[in-house]
Design a binder for these strands. Structure first.
Lengths: 349, 349
DNA sequence: TTGTAAGCGTTATCAC
DNA sequence: GTGATAACGCTTACAA
């Protein structure tokens, strides 16, 4: 049985037991190859014998590195962010870094506060989700020279490292697909666009793609709601109750899309025969249950991996790409025929 | 414009600018009421002027508190853990603590390594998911006297603080419901039970409830697979292809259940007319799309909140409950009639 | 290869 | 209420 001493062993205890100086003991742990094998062995034995665990704060204070990386994300309630965060943690762990996590729930002021808290705790690097952030945040990390990477969206200024998706292009692609199917009556159930350039970019992409065909997205055809199933249901209800219901409803993310489909089911509206529901984000689950669903898939795990790799490269002093765009994938499933009313409307023109 | 000095301001800089000692400067920040208002004002002005941010490592070294709490969870890929983690982070943040997060992906050895890493980084408290952990983990946190709380499951030994669910009782409840509907042919698609007492408890609860009625769960009626949609599909396929397919399939979690339903759809098996699919965990999404689904709901957000509160109470030296069981909820939706074959089989006996 | 010793930036214990 | 000053436990020049 291991003897449990009153106090936790310190490096000096290890050094004494191994009959070396604290400097050598430290080296044995940090740079094993810079120490003679037999002394290394003695130190390691002492470490095991005492159950020594390094004191991170002391180590950080002396070495000026915490081996900790911060991540500030909107929320973990959304699978896409949870996945990405998971991937981040995994990659960082593999590189010997621990993850400090904070969720701001789409509140810009909270984001500033949380970021400040992380910096104060001490982080060697920072992952920020999205590109639009309070100037205070950029000021803090710039002044303290903390390496960072923006994820999910792509920075247009060229000032920041970023690895992400082109949300606008994704929206254009999805909209064009629907246009080719013959749709002309569009609507969107969008996430809240405030403090969320991903939501804004998606909405803009749709507007742009439609504008290219001379179609305008009327204000009453754009519903902005928080990401939730209930929002999706409500949004669809409002849209379909209007005098001129749309034939194609684009949803800001998978949760909204699922809610919209559920409401269609509840209202007896056939999908996609009467209305096409499409959306952004993963939706593996949704597509399983509603096989006709067309979506834009974003590889969130790869995003996390590459974002982590980018930041680690910066930390290693290597040459990390300033901008890395990940490809998205349009997943067309089920029917290719346009909804009934879309055909009628188109024909009438 | 704020002047950006070459180096980050230290407390001694603040003290000099405010014309006080570092001791007073420190007090002004830590115990504002122990300092005369006018000096407090001077210090605060200096802090603002210099953009001073405390050095966490130095602070932790001197005060022996990191204001950081660690959480080791299986994964964030599963919504239930992501939700709980989100709630934890939120609660801890509100109390001035930052969250260090690690995911072990159901690997016991990784869990030990990650926990050690968190301890090494310095944590004031620890949240562990589940009750079954490597003895090394308990040894480390006990020896270092780190307050901790076990979550999700309930500790039976009484040795640990825990706040969680009675997974076995939940399984009994769900099984009894199916028994009352007239089901006699049961099967389970379980998660991997190794290193997962939640999965084990659920399986055991089903076995117990059936045994009480003299029914045995045949080995070929228990399929153990990782939590994934694909697993659910495969599992159901195997079960229904057997010579004597079950009428009631209990799924270890929502993801497996959704997969099972999807496979039913693909195979043309009517749910719940030909087979009842039920499961554990949230399933708000699944139930929206397959209204007949009966599930056991676990309030994961409340769990996170209460677990955090328990740990914070311990940290504050207060009296935290040693064991806190959260109620689960059986959500019966849709049909109450037993599946067709179940009726036939029962009648034949 | 190893040892000596000077920090790292705070907090906390004393006196005053 | 405030100010010296000694920890806190480790890393890292610099010396040997």
């Amino acid at each position: 049985m291991i003897k449990t001493s009153r106090k936790n062993a310190k490096l000096s205890d290890v050094a004494r037991l191994a009959k070396v100086s604290t400097a050598t003991a430290s080296r044995a742990l940090m740079l094993p190859h810079k120490v003679r094998p037999c002394t290394l062995e003695r130190v390691q034995a002492a470490v095991r014998g005492l159950g020594y665990v390094a004191h991170g704060a002391a180590r950080a204070l002396a070495s000026r590195r915490t081996h900790t990386i911060g991540a500030v994300v909107p929320t973990l309630d959304n699978a896409i962010f949870a996945n990405t965060t998971h991937a981040l943690q995994k990659q960082f762990d593999a590189a010997g870094y621990t993850l400090l996590l904070a969720c701001h729930e789409f509140d810009a002021a909270v984001e500033v506060r949380l970021t400040r808290a992380l910096i104060e705790r001490g982080i060697d690097g920072l992952v920020l989700l999205g590109t639009s952030h309070d100037p205070q945040i950029y000021a803090m990390i710039t002044q303290r020279k903390i390496p960072y990477v923006l994820t999910w969206a792509l920075d247009t200024s060229g000032a920041h490292h970023c690895v992400g998706f082109n949300n606008r292009a994704a929206a254009v692609q999805l909209t064009n697909h629907l246009l080719e199917l013959g749709h002309r009556e569009f609507a969107m159930i969008s996430g809240v666009t405030a403090n969320n350039e991903r939501a804004r970019d998606r909405l803009q992409g749709i507007r742009d793609a439609l504008a290219a065909r001379g179609i305008k997205l009327a204000p009453e055809r754009v519903i902005e709601k928080p990401y939730s199933l209930a929002s999706g249901r409500e949004g669809l209800g409002v849209l379909m109750a209007s005098v001129r219901p749309p034939t194609a409803v684009l949803c800001g993310n998978d949760v909204l899309a699922i809610g919209a489909i559920a409401e269609c089911n509840a209202l007896g509206i056939a999908v996609p025969r009467q209305v096409s529901i499409t959306g952004f984000d993963d939706m593996e689950i949704a597509s399983l249950l509603s096989p006709g669903l067309t979506t834009v898939h974003f590889p969130t795990l790869e995003l996390g991996q590459l974002a982590a790799a980018n930041l680690l490269a910066q930390l290693a002093g290597g040459n990390a790409a300033k901008r890395h765009e990940l490809p998205i994938e349009l997943k067309v499933r089920g029917t290719t025929a346009p909804p009934v009313r879309a055909q009628l409307r188109t024909a009438r023109r």
